[in-house]
Structure formats: C-alpha cells, structure tokens
Design a binder for these strands. Structure first.
Lengths: 188, 188
DNA sequence: GTCTATAAATTGATAGAC
DNA sequence: GTCTATCAATTTATAGAC
C-alpha cells in the first residue's frame, strides 16, 4: 500500500482524466503527465489506449465490489445499507455535480462504441449497483420481481440525478433529490 | 419543407452522427459524408466544429419546444400529456436502448467540457423537459415545490432509464420501466 | 456557392539508446 | 525497466480554382 506500482499509478491517473475530460478527449500525454511518467513509458505497461481503458473499468468494478462487500460486513440492516449507499454518493457531491457519475458517464460514453467487449465491461459497473441493491430489497422482504423493479427505480434515479446535477452544475439539485431518495427508502 | 437548405442538412447529419458516435469521436469528414457534401464545404456553413455543435443543440431545443407546444395544443388533460411524453420516448425505444437519450447523452458529454456557453446550452435541453413537466404537474393541482420535485423525479427516471437501457442494450428494461412510470403518473 | 487539394496541428504508437 | 526522439495516421481548418 505504501508503494504503488507504476501500473496502478497509471490506472489511477487515467481514471481521473477519463472522468474529468471523457475518454475520447483525453490523450495519453494527459495521462502520462497526470501520473508523472514519460509518455513513451505508458506503452511499457499498456499496449494501447483501449487496454488502459479496460484496466480502468476493471478497477472501477473491483472498487465497487469491495465497497459493497465492506458495507455488507459493517452494516447489518438492509435498509441502513441502502441509506449508506446514498450517503456515499453524497460524499462525492461536489465532483458529481460537476462531472457526473464516474461510472454512469463512462458507460454512456462507451455506449457509443462498437466494441462489444468494452460495452459489456462498462455495463458490469452498473450491474454491480443493480445486483447489490436488489439483494438489499430482497432482504427487506420484497419478492423477486419487486426487488428487481425497485433496484432499477433506485439506480435510474441515481444516474438521472447525477446527469442533471452535472448538466446544471447544481449540487443543490443533487442534495435535494438524494434527501428525497432517503425518505423513499425509509417508506418502503 | 420540400427543399432543405444545406445548412439544415448538415445540422441533421451532425445530430445523427453526434448521437451515434459521440461528439469527440465524430469527425467533420463523417458528417460531410452523412450529408453527402464535400468536406471543405462544411466550413462555408460553419466556422468550426464547435459552431456546428452549437447549431445542433439549438436545433434540439427548438424541436423539443415545438413538440411540447404541439402536445399542449392537441392534448387537453395534463395527466394525458405526461403519458404522451412517455409514449413518445417509447417510440424511439430501439435507438434509445442502443445509443441512450439524444439529449441526455449529449449533455453528459458536454459536461466534461470547460466551455461554459456549451454547458449552459446543453443544460437548456434538459431544462425544457423539466419546465414542461413541472407545468403539467402544477396543472394537476400540485403545489409549486411538489411540482418541481415531481418533474425532477420524472426526468431523472427518464435519463437513468435510457442510460441503463443503452448500457445493457436492453429494450426490455426500458419497456418495463416506462410502463411502471405510466402507472406512477396515473397514481399521482 | 461549390469543390479539390493541402496545410497545420494533434495524437496514438514505435524505435532504440541507456 | 526507463526515457527521448520521432514516425505515421488522423483531423481540423484553409487556400484557391471554378
């Protein structure tokens, strides 16, 4: 943990740049600079820009799984777990209301690609949210179909909220909507 | 209406290409080809790619305003109007479940820009949805704050739904969610 | 107004020294 | 493994003939 490999440094730099500028508008020179690594060196770790993008998505998915697993361990009540997720999103409010959701905006951009492998991988990020929330709704006693529907309700609300908040540059919109989502969770 | 100006042809071609490939990945050569116009000719109508993008967003906003105004004229009941909007979205289902929402995905991509003018313009597309739906909820008898909240609920759900449907390449997800939104509207 | 040719800049990727 | 220099391709934008 004290020493991060250059590979991980590059992934972290690329994640940030892709999030802030979009994948297409981010050059490998941007990423190399962010990681404080010479441009030519990038190619020692990743054959192509796309390979680096794949590694970034993979890191996103792993990070999500880790956080969800952590929440499962630390919070006993499924309703409290869902509220914890909302609290997490709220913590990233300032950047979310500027750049949108790191996962949703990345998935949206990749949707324009032809590359099926990338699209599937990006969908995996959103799938992580859906599966985990669905599990919580099941534990709240909802039947299979309802749990599925509620998880889609919730993640659609998330994604739409982050999209609007970013477009309007409005932390206030995000704040109010997340607050109302908390009430919604409590009412279920 | 029978003869479309080359300028309008270019805007239509750019709109399609930006929607399908994203703005950053679409070249002016792509657009010229789609419009069946020589590349050099593009610059006679638009000084830069960004100027063309601005014209595309402007066209989007105008088109939205026109459709909303048309709905106001043709449909008397505000609840039926909201259902009409859902029906409209459903008509574009196959492309929405492939490329996302033409307005939302464009706004999302532009959010990564620095250019404030573009961001504000893109936000205008989403603002059109919010203002119109808010007006309908007001006419349904909701108070100011509730109408605002409900319009955000609805448009966030829209945007999230189109994002997920595109990422999962799932018309089914979109279909089911829109159907549930219809029930939601009827229950209000 | 329309088109061809091309300039100018950017950027993904490689070669090869150390 | 690391870095510099550079290639090759792409793409925005312009020049100038018709």
């Amino acid at each position: 943990m004290t020493t991060k490999s250059k590979r991980d440094l590059l992934i972290a730099a690329a994640r940030t740049k892709f999030y802030h500028q979009g994948v297409a508008r981010t050059t490998l020179a941007d990423i190399a600079q962010e990681a404080q690594i010479p441009l030519g060196n990038v190619y020692y770790h990743f054959r192509t820009k796309e390979a680096l993008l794949e590694a970034v998505i993979e890191a996103h998915v792993e990070r999500l799984q880790t956080r969800f697993a952590q929440c499962d361990r630390e919070v006993a009540d499924p309703r409290e777990r869902l509220l914890t997720l909302i609290r997490w999103e709220r913590e990233g409010e300032s950047s979310m209301a500027r750049y949108g959701c790191p996962h949703g905006s990345l998935a949206q951009e990749i949707d324009k690609e032809e590359d099926t492998k990338l699209v599937d991988q990006a969908a995996g990020m959103l799938q992580s949210y859906l599966e985990w929330t669905e599990k919580q709704f099941r534990q709240l006693g909802k039947d299979e179909q309802e749990a599925k529907d509620l998880s889609i309700d919730m993640i659609c609300w998330f994604q739409g909220t982050f999209l609007l908040a970013a477009s309007f540059r409005s932390p206030e919109l995000m704040d109010r909507k997340l607050q109302r989502m908390e009430e919604w969770i409590r009412s279920l």
